[in-house]
Design a protein around this nucleic acid. Structure first.
Lengths: 228, 228
DNA sequence: ATGCGGCCTTGACGTGGATCAAACCGCTTC
DNA sequence: GAAGCGGTTTGATCCACGTCAAGGCCGCAT
């Protein structure tokens, strides 16, 4: 099903600006791969299979410390890519990847992908700016962790991930235990932090999976370091 | 002095693999800029002047939290570049940059640089792999901070930055207070951590600026999470 | 229904590293 | 050489967050 690959690629911000010609070349090399919930996509140290574009489901990319502690670098949802950096840099997989749900991806194999990069200058340029945006995001995550306390990190996350841009409740896109891990907190601390924000009247927690932002400005203050 | 720019560019890993033709084009747009010790190179939010290549001196790139806390993202020494990502992505300066010593840089102005990127495919490819390496480095720093305790971070830093690859003492490339900040520690905690490593016989501290690694394997164990 | 196994919450308690404070350098400057 | 100043060290104390433990909730399988 070649057309499925094209649909997936087009849905991704990474490839959306490409010409039909470039898309056609990518389509020619793309393979569709599926993973069951909980299945490992690749392990740290594996040779990098290529660049993945998520079509359905969700994947978490994480590292494991020598002591067993995990840290989730990021979550890849439909339209998002992962393993780009290893593909482009030509190194082995720098982290673990695991499907959080049944997941379907387009896979652009490393060698073919690099060949296209070498042949297509516009594609190269496009990818470069995408990488720059990715670096900026990464630095942002790092700064969240380093410069903010628990409440600040949670507030920042809520602000960034509220799809409603307002006062409707929305469901958290991930399990709280994964969110806690991503923010470098324990799930206990995350739970307590949510409660403190709710007690302060900044958010409402209708149930375990949903959040409503009651006071965006106050939440922004907390993200900027104001005490709860 | 056009030749000075070429020398600087060639000394940088970022540009070392380029053809004479590409180098010539960069030389044509390069300007030499100097900063006195302590001088600000740019501030967060400034329009990005271009890509800097350090010739002499050292620059620290850092962020400031709303509460005033600083975090040093990285140190740019001779041969290293900074502000590449903002140039390529076309955003404003995402951080502060300050000369730690009297410093001389080549500056490749944003617009000219981007024009060359658009015209030269080999250059684009080269830059892409440099960016990938840079991302990997960034993720490494982030993982150090998130997954290791104070002793682990310091041990990891020492292992990575020991130029002697052995048992000779070497001078720390930066002030301890800046190092502490980079590792997300206070200088007090860094001082105490050095002492603990020295008491454990893993390192020797002949004076405040120098370190000698006595037991590389033991230090590696600490970096992997073993208690001191 | 019943049991079971994740996930989430809440409480009590412990601790790594921050903070506060003081003293000691090695400099530069007068 | 006295005074001043940043950087470093050390000690005493504090606190945000982790750890440990227990209980509640919900979906799923028997």
């Amino acid at each position: 099903m070649a057309s499925e690959a094209v649909t997936i690629l087009q849905s991704s911000g990474f490839f959306s600006g490409l010409s039909d010609e470039s898309l056609g070349r990518l389509e020619a090399i793309a393979r569709i791969v599926s993973f069951q919930k909980g299945q490992t996509v690749f392990r740290k140290g594996d040779p990098c299979p290529g660049l993945y574009v998520v079509a359905h489901g969700a994947v978490r990319i994480y590292k494991i410390a020598p002591n067993g502690k995990e840290h989730v670098l990021h979550f890849a949802y439909p339209g998002m890519t992962f393993a780009e950096v290893a593909v482009i840099g030509g190194f082995e997989c720098p982290a673990y990847a695991q499907a959080m749900e049944d997941t379907r991806c387009a896979l652009l194999p490393q060698r073919d992908f690099c060949r296209i990069l070498e042949e297509s200058h516009p594609f190269c340029l496009q990818l470069m700016t995408s990488m720059a945006a990715w670096v900026r995001h990464l630095v942002g995550v790092m700064e969240d962790i380093v410069l903010r306390d628990a409440a600040g990190r949670v507030a920042q996350f809520l602000i960034r991930s509220d799809p409603t841009d307002g006062t409707a409740a929305f469901v958290l896109p991930i399990l709280k235990k994964d969110l806690a891990n991503h923010l470098n907190l324990t799930s206990e601390t995350l739970s307590r932090t949510f409660r403190r924000l709710a007690d302060a009247g900044l958010i409402d927690l209708p149930d375990a999976q949903r959040v409503r932002i009651l006071n965006p400005d106050g939440l922004a203050d907390v993200a900027q370091g104001s005490p709860v």
